[in-house]
Computed example of a mutant assay.
Amino acid sequence: MKKYSAAVVGLGSIGQGLDYDLDVNRKDICLTHASSYYQHYGFQLVAGVDTSDSFRAKFKSKFQAPAFLTVSELEKIKPDVISICVPSHLHKSIFDEVIDLGPKAIVCEKPISDSLLEADEMVKKAQSKQCLLIVNFIRRFEKGNLELKKKFDRNEFGKIRKVSVFYSKGVLNNGSHFINLLSFFFGEPVYCRVIQKGNVLGNLDIEPDFLLKFQNGVDAYFIAGTETDFSVKEIVFLTEKGIINYQQGGMKIEYFPVDISSIFKDYKIKSLESQPVTTDFNRYQWYTVDALYNHLEHGVDCNSDGLSALHTQLVVDKIFSQYNQMEGMK
């Protein structure tokens, strides 16, 4: 079996930190790029890159592989696959260095860039170099979300009446995950309207309430919470045949079908008994890498590429534009 060499640029939280303290051979949790390459049978983790001395030392200690100060030092290895896990405002500059090394694929953390222009340039450059660009919208790969999409495609829930999305920590940082996910389920948005401005997070992100209408006719209302209260990543799908509760960002997905009331004759109600959709969210990053392997080895299309991420970025850009035109509204 062929193994593809892989390197991780950026050894912070998503690069290696989130599951760093777990045993290197533990397989039931996989939250970072480094762990996913290390755990997957189709890859060999060959290097890391970071400007932090301590992060490089931790990488070398755990994964027994070299860690470099600069991307240019990867030239001596030329990995088949390179993950970009640096802050989003650095994505474009790191991407330009990485793609010149000639990798077969680049896995870039979301959002693809803070700049729509830069995102477009990255997508076009990857296409011109015949390099697969995956953007790490993890829910497009995780098995519970894929099963839910199949159920939507089979029309198991009947007509989708409305969708409510509850998010916090910004439309760019977290809201974009669910814009992208609903686009995966229902087609790209065809209409966008900011309803209420909400909070401003520093100079880089915002938390408005907004409405999106998707290609298949589904309306989704995004409602912002307050991150300082608690982090919220929940979706409620109101359907013809019941209600789907999508909880804690996808950790738990439950379907509550319509039932007949035992008290009021012929009165339809939401059942108190749920039908779970099996998820494996503790290993979400492994599923991204597995999809990448299936593409490289078998030519299987990837569910989240640069173009789909660019479409999400376009929607986010429209939300920011409308937000900035709503002076004085709270």
Rank of each mutant, 00 (worst) to 15 (best):
F256A: 08
F256M: 06
A220T: 08
L314M: 14
I223G: 11
R139F: 09
D96E: 08
L172Q: 07
I134M: 08
Y293K: 05
G328R: 02
D100A: 11
V315K: 07
F184S: 05
F256W: 07
Q215V: 04
C108R: 01
D305Q: 12
T226W: 13
I260G: 10
I77C: 05
S274K: 09
D153G: 03
Q64M: 08
L212W: 08
D259Q: 13
F43W: 04
V232R: 09
C302T: 15
E297C: 11
S321T: 13
G15P: 02
D317F: 04
L310W: 04
S54F: 15
D305Y: 12
D114Q: 13
V49D: 00
P189Q: 07
L116K: 07
E142D: 04
K2Q: 15
V107T: 01
K233T: 10
K265D: 13
G202Q: 03
K125G: 03
I244G: 00
K213Y: 04
F210H: 04
D96N: 08
I138Q: 09
S304D: 02
L307N: 12
V315D: 06
K92Y: 15
N303W: 04
F230S: 13
V171I: 10
L272C: 14
P111V: 11
Y38K: 07
G48H: 05
F68D: 01
K92I: 07
S115A: 04
G42F: 05
Q215Y: 09
S231K: 14
P257E: 02
Y221I: 15
D280N: 07
Q325I: 05
Y287T: 03
R193S: 15
I206K: 02
A291Q: 09
S231R: 14
V258M: 15
K78P: 10
Q44A: 13
H89T: 15
I14K: 09
D205T: 02
L310V: 02
G242E: 04
N173D: 11
P208L: 09
I160W: 05
F222L: 08
P87K: 06
A6K: 00
Q285K: 11
G170M: 05
N199G: 14
V98P: 00
G144P: 00
F68V: 00
G10K: 05
K76V: 11
T278R: 08
F210D: 04
K104C: 07
T51Y: 10
P111W: 06
P79G: 01
P87H: 03
